[in-house]
Amino acid sequence: MNLRTENICVNIDKKSIVNNFSVDIKGKEFVGIVGPNGCGKSTFLKTIYRNISPDNGAIFLNEKDIKKMSIKDTAKQMAALPQESPISFDFKVEEVVMMGRAPHKTFFQTDSKEDIEIVINSLKKVGMDETWDKSFFKLSGGEKQRVLIARALAQNAKFLILDEPTNHLDIKYQLQIMDIIKSLNLTVFAALHDLNIAAKYCDKIYVIKEGNVFCYGAPEEVLKPEVLKEVFGVEAEVAIHPRTGKINIVYL
């Protein structure tokens, strides 16, 4: 599943939030998007999963313009985990995950045996299959996030859009969830807050500054001290960790 955007622009209250964003993500790549708060990351992701419409530009999913696709057809191919995923009522875990099957069913269609098997398998992938009959509200933050990932997986989509998937989680659950996502072998485009997490898991990274793509490349190509100073306003040392072979950022 490939994603390509051309010159996406979004203006809010006459202010440019996203300015000519063009990205090209190949099948099964894990691509990150990083930048300071308010730089346009979440707004850009919302245009991709069709939460908002861009003022200009085009988005192609497997070279098909998503404007020519129905919302339902888009959801069959692309699943999103927004930064905020409010659940208004206290559903059971299985009911939350079953919501991911909605794009594949008509409004009045009941859950099939296949739907149930997909839900169970999705929960197994995130290690939550033993909680299927529990109250979603009674889960911990990390458990809720894994259930929401399972809901996205239940869509059977080949492309995941994730907006701060590890937000508000302690480091154990951050690594656990990122390991799960990486192991799925899907195409992933994720906004990430922690630059060391981005360096560890991403194949490529887009660095955003003030609504513009500042640079793009492999983690070691873009997460350089001069870039961190220019974009994030911090002094840092960047080195290759001897055990992992991944870059490690130390803030000074």
Rank of each mutant, 00 (worst) to 15 (best):
N2W: 12
N2L: 09
V18Y: 12
V18A: 14
S22F: 05
V31S: 06
V34Y: 06
N37A: 15
G40H: 13
S42E: 11
L45T: 09
K46N: 09
I48H: 13
N51S: 01
S53P: 06
D55H: 01
N56F: 01
A58T: 14
M69D: 11
D73H: 06
T74L: 14
Q77D: 15
F89D: 00
D90R: 09
F91N: 05
G100E: 03
R101P: 05
F108E: 00
D111Y: 05
S112Y: 12
S122D: 11
S122V: 06
K124M: 14
G127P: 05
M128S: 09
D129A: 14
K134S: 11
F136D: 08
L139E: 06
S140E: 07
G141F: 15
L148M: 06
L148F: 09
I149M: 02
A150D: 08
A154H: 03
N156S: 15
N156H: 07
K158Y: 12
L160R: 05
K172N: 05
D194P: 05
L195T: 00
I197V: 11
C202G: 11
K204E: 13
G211V: 05
F214Q: 13
P219E: 01
E220M: 11
L223E: 00
K224T: 00
K229E: 12
K246G: 00
I249E: 02
V250C: 03
L252Y: 02
